[in-house]
Amino acid sequence: MKLKKLEGLLGDLQQFTRPKVELEQYATGPHIASRMLYTAENSFDDITGKVVADFGCGCGTLAVASSLLDAEHVVGIDIDPQSLELAQENAADLELDIDLIQCDIKNLNLRGLLVDTVVMNPPFGTSRKGADMEFISMGLKVASRAVYSLHKTSTREHIKKAALRNYNAISAEVLCELRYNLPKTYKFHKQKEVDIAVDFWRFVPRARDER
């Protein structure tokens, strides 16, 4: 599938109607989401034919994108039931089969071996400090190939250290820096929306038998 086509399909997805600020609910935009998944597949072979989990799937943008790029099995996980309903509708509209689980990521108990790749746009940890780190830590426990994620550029050094030292990553690489459009509820700004600098990361977990 061409990048433009992917971005177009993601642009038609329904988004949060009543976003919950405490859960940092805002959809991953089609431009960023399509490029994340396109890079994961075309540069690293991490999506097509793979088992992919989307942590904090929200309306399901990254899960849907994985499925459109022919991931063999896609699981979306979110704590919020309304988000999961939206994700389910979005998948159904495109006739995609995506499994969904309602769970708090920090309490997830998923047998790692079966999941190849984790993709996520976790909370940046603005509403609840440390939420971003819980997602990285769990992603690296569950994935056997790679974890793709978005984090504020201002946390770059901290994330790199934590991933390598504490969460079993053998590599933690920023693939690119991008501008992320946040609804203004998330920052105390007067403008309607605000752009923040965000890093697109790829983490590689240590092989299971070396942990």
Binding site: V51, D99, N109
Partner: peptide, 21 residues
């Protein structure tokens, strides 16, 4: 939920050892 997902999912309830299957 399909059975491939069932095959990877476990319980994290207090008191569980593996919580699986």
């Amino acid at each position: 939920m399909r059975l491939l997902t069932h095959n990877m999912l476990a319980s994290n309830a207090r008191g569980a050892s593996t919580g699986y299957p």
